[in-house]
């Protein structure tokens, strides 16, 4: 187990370093940041250019610059955002809670909806309910997130006016006060559902097939023969075993949700890291993009790492590989 964990952490670190190298390297490949940052009035003034270069440490060798970048990245220090004129670190710290909230809500919805539906459609195989679930799964995997989001806004926010269409309400930071909770949840429902949709579909299919397999096993039949009620057999005997792979998948999709949220955050104007990333991309705001991508990437790698290690505990076959 220790070897497995060490190896897995090593792999994670390697990917992280590769990511940082690509992020840092691409700035240098595609242009000279010092020249890009020159004010138009000083465009032909080489002394200003040199001073700028020195100020940003761009006159040092590549490897030294990369090392400095890494050291700063650990502290989330990515320099000043070009457009917001304040440290990227500050923006990140504001945005990270929003994205994490959304990802958690998305995962809760994905598992909370996907698992029961999958189990029920396995138990009620080939009934109308099973067919409806199947259609929902097919739709969920094919419909573009941005479109589903807009349609839901039209119906729930525009036509019925039940839910807010945009933003996070008056929420900021990590923890809401008691009075903020209803408002926060109302703002979370639509974006979290859209984020979860494709994963609900995948989890449903996974839970259904795992459940069908388990329902066919001897110990489930034995429990039935023993005269136990259907409810106990299904939820206590069968579901518990069927859900191990499903939960793992849920964990991995949490990692994906931390990033898959770019589109969702844009449509719902959700003030998270994904929206920050797109704002940066559209305005050539390199520090902001670097910060957002490094944070999302690191979060993704870390979550995947934790899930893999937990999975290694749950299923010894994984560690043997």
């Amino acid at each position: 187990m220790t070897t497995y964990i060490v190896r897995r952490i090593g792999e994670g670190l390697l990917t992280l370093i590769a990511l940082s190298f690509v992020v840092f390297g691409s700035v240098h490949l595609t242009g000279d940041p010092a020249r890009f940052l020159l004010p138009i009035s000083a465009e032909h003034d080489e002394s200003v250019y040199e001073a700028q270069k020195a100020a940003y440490g761009l006159d040092k060798p590549f490897i030294v610059q990369y090392w400095n970048f890494l050291i700063k990245a650990v502290r989330l220090d990515f320099g000043q955002s070009f457009t917001a004129r304040r440290p990227v670190q500050e923006i990140l710290l504001e945005r990270i809670p929003a994205t994490v909230h959304l990802a958690i809500a998305g995962t809760v919805l994905a598992i909370g909806i996907g698992v029961p539906l999958g189990i029920i459609s396995a138990v009620r195989r080939d009934t109308v309910l099973d067919k409806v679930c199947k259609i929902f799964a097919v739709f969920g995997m094919a419909a573009p997130q941005f479109w589903v989001a807009i349609m839901l806004i039209i119906v729930f926010a525009g036509y019925w006016g039940w839910l807010p269409a945009f933003g996070r309400g008056d929420m900021t930071g990590w923890f809401p006060s008691w009075s903020q909770i209803p408002n926060m949840l109302a703002h979370l429902v639509l974006p979290a559902f859209v984020l979860a949709l494709a994963i609900i579909a995948a989890i449903m299919r996974l839970a259904r097939s795992a459940m069908l397999e388990v329902l066919d096993s001897d110990y489930v039949k034995f429990a039935q023969v023993k005269g136990m009620s259907d409810r106990v057999v299904i939820w206590k005997h069968a579901a518990r075993n069927a859900l191990i792979p499903v939960i793992t998948f849920g964990g991995i999709s949490l990692a994906g949700l931390l990033n898959g949220s770019v589109v969702v955050e844009v449509v719902f104007a959700w003030p998270g890291v994904g929206l920050m990333l797109l704002e940066g991309v559209l305005s050539n705001n390199f520090p902001q993009v670097e910060g957002a991508i490094m944070v999302s990437g690191a979060a993704y790698i870390l979550t995947a790492l934790v899930v893999d290690i937990l999975y290694g505990y749950a299923d010894p076959r994984v560690r043997m590989n």
């Binding site: 390697l14 990917t15 590769a18 990511l19 690509v22 992020v23 691409s26 700035v27 490949l29 595609t30 994906g256 990033n259 898959g260 770019v262 589109v263 990333l277 797109l278 940066g280 991309v281 050539n284 390199f286 993009v289 991508i293 999302s296 990437g297 993704y300 790698i301 995947a304």
Partner: peptide, 23 residues
């Protein structure tokens, strides 16, 4: 395969955004 895994390890949209930023 290390390179392949690194690319596979990230959501496509993130990689695509990174590319579009610089190009």
């Amino acid at each position: 395969m290390r390179i392949t895994d690194a690319v596979l390890g990230f959501p496509s949209i993130l990689v695509a955004l990174l590319i579009v930023t610089y190009l």
